[in-house]
Nucleic acid binder design. Structure first.
Length: 116
DNA sequence: GGTTTGACGACCC
DNA sequence: AGGGTCGCCAAAC
């Protein structure tokens, strides 16, 4: 839900990010910036990355489906083991080379377009 | 309480 | 294409 986050309620921001990430269909990926744009003012791509950091403990958040705007696996190092992110994406049809999703264009899922 | 640090991104060379 | 700069904003120090 688009809106403002004053960061007094950053917990809500976290949960909105997680809810949104859960909506990413299997076999599709999106970017930190797209999520930030969807959530609106007060959010930023850095904050989404921060939320993903915190999401590491939450099992049902498919954090591997969030990459940077070039399709690169910038969060790879934060998975255990790091290869896990790449493996999960490959299982969902991603072609990865040099930590970069080659078919990113086809897999890209933009909440600003797909969600009303 | 200023500085540095990021799972980022947009610009400008 | 590849790099530097800047805006972003909470945390850690």
């Amino acid at each position: 839900m688009p809106g403002k986050y004053t960061y007094i309620n950053r917990t809500n921001f976290f949960e909105d990010v997680w809810e949104l990430v859960k909506l990413i269909p299997k076999g599709r990926v999106t970017s930190y910036g797209s999520i930030a744009r969807y959530l609106g003012a007060g959010s930023s791509a850095r904050m989404v990355g921060w939320a993903m950091n915190a999401a590491g403990a939450i099992e049902d958040v498919p954090a591997h489906r969030v990459v940077n705007r070039n399709g690169m696996l910038s969060g790879k190092a934060h998975f255990d083991p790091p290869e896990k992110m790449e493996r999960l994406l490959q299982q969902e049809g991603a072609v990865i080379e040099n930590n970069c999703i080659k078919n990113f264009q086809e897999m890209f899922w933009d909440p600003n377009i797909e969600l009303i």
